[in-house]
Write a protein that binds this DNA or RNA. Structure first.
Length: 271
DNA sequence: CGGACAACCTGGCGGC
DNA sequence: TGCCGCCAGGTTGTCC
């Protein structure tokens, strides 16, 4: 599910509900979801800690507390939301971790596929490892993008998915960015012209920024923290539109396999 | 450095 | 309706 726009939407939706709250208890039923400490120690250590901020780094949700940092990666099907203790939520069937809060509410982590992770850590970097720049931040300029591209020789879609190259882009927005830039997903990065690099820089940021403004894409599992759907999927140019006409030229959108991922593109616009 | 692939897991969908 | 194979938005580790 979630790429940068979806994770950002979750963070924005939960910030007011969580910042200032103190975690009072923890429950879990799937050990592998928890990282950083053995479950018993995790629960003992987090109890009493106050959430001081709610931010995002790449696709990680980051919650600095007064002693440690609580981090969450939603992977494919993770969902994070706050509910009144005892209240029923549509995603409860797959809840694997719950945190009790000091106002009687609960922070719940639901994840049908169990790929998601909840971390207790001292530093963000200990969890994320090396990550590339945040594509929507001002510091990520076209010059930086060009610089990071230099010397790389890789299928461009694969490079966009590489979190150490640029952080936060996933399969959906990689396809959307390449379409906007009119670049074929199988192009080798070293063959891109100066103009194409400029177009890709602008297109990547625009695709992600639009995704944030539309509050994420609800294709399968992703929902906003309040349970409602995002709108981004209604504005895709190519993702999931194989067999349908290109909005730009009318040609039929194709789907192929690139970097082991389903990849959608217009064979005419992106030749 | 780059590419391919398995692994981690379960649910939903199309086809028969 | 039931069963089967296939697909899925992510990341990590291994092998060539």
């Amino acid at each position: 599910m979630p790429e940068l726009p979806e994770v950002e939407t979750v963070v924005r939706g939960l910030r007011d509900k969580l910042v200032g709250r103190t975690i009072t208890s923890m429950w879990h039923d799937w050990e592998n979801t928890l990282r950083g400490l053995p479950p018993t120690d995790f629960a003992a250590r987090i109890a009493g800690q106050k959430i001081e901020a709610m931010t995002r780094r790449a696709k990680y949700i980051v919650m600095p507390m007064n002693h440690d940092i609580l981090m969450v990666h939603l992977k494919m099907t993770g969902r994070l939301y706050v509910a009144d203790a005892g209240a029923i939520h549509g995603a409860d069937r797959w809840v694997h971790v719950k945190f009790g809060l000091d106002n009687g509410q609960e922070l719940r982590f639901s994840d049908s596929r169990k790929f998601g992770r909840v971390y207790l850590t001292q530093t963000v970097e200990a969890v994320t490892g090396d990550l590339g720049p945040e594509p929507l931040e001002d510091i990520f300029t076209e010059a930086i993008f060009r610089e990071r591209l230099a010397g790389r020789s890789k299928v461009i879609k694969g490079l966009l998915l590489d979190q150490t190259f640029v952080a936060g882009t996933g399969n959906i927005y990689a396809d959307e960015a390449l379409h906007r830039a009119k670049i074929h997903p199988l192009r080798k990065s070293e063959t891109l012209t100066d103009a194409e690099i400029a177009a890709l820089y602008t297109s990547l940021r625009a695709a992600l920024a639009d995704g944030v403004n539309y509050e994420g894409a609800s294709i399968q599992w992703y929902r906003k923290p309040d349970g409602s759907a995002g709108e981004s999927q209604h504005h895709f140019f190519v993702y999931g539109r194989d067999g349908e006409p290109c909005h730009t030229c009318g040609a039929v959108i194709e789907k192929i396999r690139v970097a082991q991922r389903g990849t959608h593109f217009c064979p005419v616009c992106q030749s």
